[in-house]
Write a protein that binds this DNA or RNA. Sequence first.
DNA 1: CTGAAAGCGCTTACAG
DNA 2: CTGAAAGCGCTTACAG
Lengths: 330, 330
Amino acid sequence: MKRPTLEAVAARAGVSRATVSRVVNGSATVNPRIRTAVLRAVEELGYIPNSAARSLVTQRTGSIGLVVSEPPARVFSDDPFFLSVVRAVSQELEAADKQVVLMMPSTPAGQARVERYVAGRHVDGVILLSQHGADPLPAALLRTGVPVVSHGRPVSTARPPYCDADNVGGARAAVEHLLATGRRRIAAITGPPDMSAGLDRLAGYREVLSGTDRRSLAALGDFTRESGAAAMAQLLEDDPGLDAVFAANDLMAAGALHALRKAGRRVPDDVAVVGFDDIDAARYTDPPLTTVRQPVVEVARAAVRMLLAGGERPAEPVVLPTELIVRDST
Amino acid sequence: MKRPTLEAVAARAGVSRATVSRVVNGSATVNPRIRTAVLRAVEELGYIPNSAARSLVTQRTGSIGLVVSEPPARVFSDDPFFLSVVRAVSQELEAADKQVVLMMPSTPAGQARVERYVAGRHVDGVILLSQHGADPLPAALLRTGVPVVSHGRPVSTARPPYCDADNVGGARAAVEHLLATGRRRIAAITGPPDMSAGLDRLAGYREVLSGTDRRSLAALGDFTRESGAAAMAQLLEDDPGLDAVFAANDLMAAGALHALRKAGRRVPDDVAVVGFDDIDAARYTDPPLTTVRQPVVEVARAAVRMLLAGGERPAEPVVLPTELIVRDST
DNA sequence: CTGAAAGCGCTTACAG
DNA sequence: CTGAAAGCGCTTACAG
């Protein structure tokens, strides 16, 4: 059972292919009577345009690539925040009548495939997610000439336009809150040093402390729960007198909570903990986590808009405000 | 700057388009000298085949659709298990040299778009994720004639071939473990009644209890943490004497843990808790959660294989074994 | 082993 | 407002 073509519809409706095409594509300049006849033929035959043929002539596909370039062993296997972002972007793209092609290359070969895919114009544009500094893919994609927008400030040498949450400001609010509630020794658990979200949050933390007489004290994490627990243990060893910790994301904050409990410290009595992201789980840690909420949907929407706007001129970055959510861990 | 076409490469290499096409597609029957010349021309021009043109003639796209049909308000915004599945499927598809088109329609209009997209042969096949009983999309996709495979036993009237973990067996193992460790009043927190994973796990729970003199006692959840907490509270009210609970997924088990703590019950001393999925967070609950691990990667691989095998004959379902992971909550 | 030619299914100036 | 025709960039029998 072959699929009906424009040709078949035209024959059935007794008009030319051009007319059918016009009706199908909603051109205004078609006689209402003819339009009705064509629509009926389309209906009767169950006609659906062949997208390859259409793309071939229009040079557009209606698809947008969502590229997540993540080392396989890494991070996101369990980060709900990442999923929220994918959902939000997907939702916005759907609203704009675009399809989402999800690409999560985990090997150099996979990256090469993504590059070919994009260069082959399988997609009309690309949104980059969770970039790492050393990743060569963003630059490669930029070179294809396909519009590229980054979700999150890029750290690589490639400099696509981007949208992001105000990571610096959010971190600043978190640390200021800690200070305001009387904490004296505030440590930080950082994200991976090649990701802007981690970098920017650390910068916010440092900014606030540098304005006081407090020393900053940071331990390295990689956004996983495990690394948060390990970093917390390390911090307790480095400075047993600390009374607060700012973790660069909620997953690490959850790990820190775990480590504190194991070390016999009470939260918030002995040590206050603040996270970042406000994932659902933040309301379910023990105690519920004070954290910084990001405008996930708004950032996603901004990125989609920026991309669809063409990305031709070097668009100004869009940076959206965050919000401190105070719960029981501080 | 227009992209070079086959034509341009042919001109540059001094051969016909047909020959270039053969070289590009790796046909064996090409004179090595000519092949080299063509390859050089491809290289020099930076030629990349236009995928729309290729699809138009080959009738294939190299893309597979991953369809997640989930009411917007629902569940998965925070379920790490879902993300694991997406990653695993994506990984397997990548290994098979296919691209992943992620479709998460959240409105009827979105569903209609997905249907058109698939019917328009934008993809060579579809993998269905997390189906709900009432969802009309699976049946619609099946009707398009495009190969469809379900990840997870389908519950709708549509009956695509499927791959799944052994949910019944896993639940059975969990409840038997509870029995073996001396628990007498074992309650259950169920998943949504229109999803097979929840249904099958409940069935496993009932099977085991029906072989004993114990009554079964279930409260309804929907796979979210919140619903797990609410269901637990309900169960404690219904039967204050319960000493164990089997939750149909880890997120609900985490919610139950929370509710138990709030009710002043100690885990596992007063009440034992078992979950299902073995998400990363299961090792970080307080106490760490006993749960049933699913072979995520293997199920994903099986689904991809089944799909690529063509799905022509009504393939036998593939159901893979689960494993009980005992931690401190039992 | 290679090339000329047909054809995949559409859109879009261009005439009328 | 409508149609005939060209053309999008490829692949693939079919000859040679």
